[in-house]
Nucleic acid binder design. Structure first.
Length: 493
RNA sequence: CGGGGUGUAGCGCAGUCUGGUAGCGCGCCAGCUUUGGGAGCUGGAUGUCGAAGGUUCGAAUCCUUUCGCCCCGACCA
């Protein structure tokens, strides 16, 4: 039993990651000015401007990818008739415990059959409208996405990772054939995977969820799993093959080219503000947040150093010109010319907020024609020629983006093991520790549950082709029964 | 929901055991001096002590109830 350790912190400082990972995480969120716990509303958070700006960048990039793959945005009601939720058996069972119900409205108690729940996800209500909108195979595929908030009554909340209300997007599509639907599931999983790696610099394993971990009501759930810096896994996105389950529950039928009446094949897929939690736990350090340039609201900050008016006169015009040049190159640049704060204080502040690169520009630099620059992750400052700095900056930022991805990949490799014996397995996961472990599993729910019960370790996914070790026969780590391939095991968020 | 913590100024905390009317550091405001890695001095502002009830002449402190947050379980994006 881990007793909560009191970590003495100086004001405005961050608990060391190695001392207490959860405290570190909270400190980074606070010091980065990303969000705060709402307190007045149980389990909810306020996403502050700097945190929301990151979400907006995530949204912008993903939205473009969704549109490029043919999807259109729409918006469905927040309130869903309770009767809808009850229509799909597995769906009810999965979501019932975490649903908030509106029982009173207009000053009166609503009759049982007129009560609403606040959406935990929108498969049901969208199924209802799909059934109205879809008549023939010519209406298919129906490719809809919704940016929305959802609510799930969680017992245990953590900022960005699990809150009662959260922001996400949910894609919902309907297709004429199962094959087409499966292709959609894969397509969107790849959109997520590419986004995670190229934009978030967060490497992911693409895989399939076991039956016990899949979405309530789906035939199959595919996922991307990322390793956090404590070795735990974060499910960062999911893409579901819903089969005809919701089609049947909501009578979503179409007339095929051959004139037959058939149920549609549906998919749904989503990522949430949880991605921000993943971003934090993939890259950040004891000095605070580290953002990949592609998601940084401020990519470069210029700190002018000028104490006297005469120095300001020489420095500030150079700073302004450099800022303009950077802007012209498409760089999100911020000049921190606040009075009354010393340069050092500004350096720390922007580091905590995750700005990828800092440029220091003072009288000496103007004289020499070189500015001091410092990447968020390096210990050394580098001199760059002021004249060519703006031209070089896109390349520097690209390099930084790549560096973060490579570093995260290396970290994952160093913390990924192949395990074949139960003793070794228990050792890897002893005392709260976690790694990614490729292990054989006999494919049964019972074994999966036993492993989880004894070690807290879950099967994160069965890797898709090329995402894990090549399939090979083996024996289950727990039971010794035959296994056809290794699966990814880890503790998870 | 169980176990363990915790709630006092914007942030971090002391004060609670042993009741006497609230303090420290940082931050904030003003002024001067400063300014290339968290500045110094002087002066100043800020609290319904999580909430509600009770005991008491008197409650941050004792009692009861309640709410939030954190950690560990049970459940989940």
């Amino acid at each position: 039993m881990a007793v909560l350790r009191r970590v003495t912190m100086e004001s405005g400082k961050i608990t060391k990651q190695s001392e207490d990972f959860p405290s570190w995480y909270q400190d980074v969120v606070r010091e980065g000015d990303l969000a705060e716990v709402a307190k007045i509303v149980k389990g909810c958070m306020v996403i502050k401007p700097h945190g929301y700006a990151i979400w907006e960048k995530i949204q912008a990039d993903l939205d473009r990818r969704f549109k490029e793959t043919g999807h259109k945005n729409a918006y469905f009601p927040l309130l869903i008739p309770m009767s809808f939720i009850n229509k799909e058996a597995e769906h009810v069972e999965g979501f019932a415990p975490e649903i908030a119900v509106v029982t009173h409205a207009g000053g009166k108690e609503l009759p049982k059959d007129e009560q609403y729940c606040i959406r935990p996800t929108s498969e049901t209500i969208i199924g209802h409208f799909f059934s109205k909108w879809i008549d023939s195979y010519r209406d298919l595929p129906m490719l809809i996405n919704q940016w929305a908030n959802v609510m799930r009554w969680e017992m245990h909340t953590r900022m960005f990772l699990r809150t009662t209300e959260f922001l996400w997007q949910e894609g919902h599509t309907a297709h004429a054939s199962h094959q087409e639907a499966k292709e959609e599931v894969t397509r969107m999983l790849n959109v997520y995977g590419d986004f995670a790696e190229q934009v978030m610099a967060m490497p992911v394993i693409r895989g399939i969820k076991t039956d016990s971990e899949k979405f309530a009501g789906a035939l199959q759930t595919q996922c991307i799993e990322a390793m956090m810096r404590d070795g735990k896994a974060l499910q960062a996105g999911t893409s579901h093959d819903l089969g005809q389950n919701f089609g049947k529950a909501f009578d979503v039928k179409f007339q095929s080219a051959e004139g037959r009446e058939e149920f549609v094949w549906q998919t749904s897929w989503g990522v949430s503000t949880r991605l921000i939690g993943g971003l934090i736990m993939s890259h950040s350090d004891d000095s605070g947040l580290i953002l990949p340039p592609k998601l940084a609201p401020i990519q470069a900050v210029i700190v002018p150093i000028a104490r006297k008016d005469a120095e300001k006169e020489t420095v500030l015009p150079v700073v302004d010109k450099l800022a303009a040049d950077l802007k012209a190159k498409g760089i999100a640049v911020k000049v921190d010319d606040r009075e009354g704060k010393r340069p050092g204080e500004k350096y720390y502040e922007w580091e905590r907020k995750g700005v990828p690169i800092r440029i220091e520009l003072g009288p000496r630099d103007v004289a020499s024609g070189e500015a001091m620059t410092k990447l968020r992750v390096s210990d050394d400052k580098v001199k760059m020629k002021i004249d060519t700095l703006a031209d070089e900056m896109p390349g520097v930022l690209d390099g930084f983006q790549q560096f973060l991805l490579n570093r995260a990949l290396r970290f994952r490799e160093e913390n990924t093991v192949t395990v074949d014996t139960w003793d070794e397995f228990k050792d890897v996961f002893s005392e709260g520790a976690s790694k990614f472990a490729w292990c054989h599993w006999d494919g049964t729910r019972e074994t999966e549950a036993r492993i989880k019960e004894e070690t807290k370790v879950t099967i994160r996914c069965i890797p898709l082709s090329g995402q894990g070790p090549a399939p090979e026969e083996g024996k289950c780590i727990k039971t010794g029964n035959p296994s056809k391939q290794r699966v990814l095991m880890a503790k998870s968020y």
